[in-house]
């Protein structure tokens, strides 16, 4: 479904991604772990095309997409949510979701029909709003809704494009324990065939949802395997959990 081969990226002397290889199966829930500065967000930027790699390949369904633009990759069904909310400011929740849904449903360039009242678009908007718990806030401006709601809309925007591969960058950051439980339920409600990559800091959540875990450190894949193995790995405890402790070294 999604495959990465020997992907490398450096900013000057700083190697942020080093010979990363990944293979994510259709419908798989993959969690990316790693301390701050391990290159998780950079990897997402490379996957969706917001950054160009120095070397390596990115394949979607076996097709090389490394040279494709951001929008062309999105049209292949690759969608992402951002670590820092990246919404359409000044517009309502409905308008935000409709922009995404209309784009995916080919209504974004209709010259006469109002895409935001299109039946298919509205159905998607309502469905996604229900999933991310924003049904009550559809007519509210994104500038006035609470932070947690904006965080859910961030994921909703990606979801409304009906992707086949969904990349979520720390979707639960800053939303508190209640929000994390709700996110857990949300994830389990997603279609089984949807392939999901999540950058996550919350270890319990990560181990609870992951089919497989990939751990990055200093831009390198240092572990790739089932969550149970990750939990028991001394190496991970050292580089990942260790960096949380007071004695931890390699944080950026």
């Amino acid at each position: 479904m999604l495959e990465v081969r020997d992907l490398s990226k450096s900013f000057g002397a700083l190697a942020v991604t080093q010979r990363v290889s990944l293979r994510v199966a259709p419908g798989e829930r993959r969690v990316l772990l790693g301390p701050n500065g391990a290159g998780k967000t950079t990897l997402f930027n490379l996957l969706v095309g917001e950054l160009a790699p120095d070397s390596g390949l990115i394949l979607v369904d076996g097709r090389d997409v490394t040279a494709l633009s951001v929008d062309a990759r999105a049209r292949l069904g690759l969608a992402r949510s951002y670590q820092k909310n990246n919404l359409f400011a000044g517009l309502t929740v409905h308008e935000n979701l409709a922009l995404s849904a209309a784009c995916a449903q080919g209504k974004a360039t209709a010259l006469l029909a109002d895409s935001h009242r299109d039946r298919g678009v509205v159905a998607t908007v309502e469905e996604v709003a229900e999933r991310v718990g924003l049904s009550e806030l559809l007519d509210a401006s994104v500038d006035t809704i609470p932070y947690g709601a904006r965080r859910r809309l961030e994921v909703g925007l990606a979801l409304a494009s009906k992707p086949r591969i969904l990349l979520m960058d720390e979707p639960t950051s800053g939303i508190g324990p209640g929000g994390i439980n709700a996110f857990h339920a949300f994830l389990h409600g997603l279609p089984a065939e949807l392939t999901i990559l999540i950058v996550e800091h919350d270890m319990d959540l990560a181990f609870g949802i992951a089919d497989r875990v990939t751990v990055l450190n200093h831009g390198e894949v240092v572990f790739d395997g089932p969550p149970q193995e990750a939990r028991d790995s001394a190496l991970i405890r050292e580089i990942y959990l260790g960096s949380w402790g007071a004695e931890g070294g390699g944080h950026a």
Binding site: V70, A72, A74, F88, L99, A108, D114, S115, H116, S161
Partner: peptide
């Protein structure tokens, strides 16, 4: 008419957040 169409809605989307519009698949 153009502004209330899908074309116009998307244009406003570009003004509000052009990179996100691109990330959603719009050329």
């Amino acid at each position: 008419t153009l502004l209330r169409s899908g074309f116009g809605r998307t244009l406003v989307g570009i003004r509000a957040n052009e990179p996100r519009m691109r990330a959603l698949g719009l050329p």
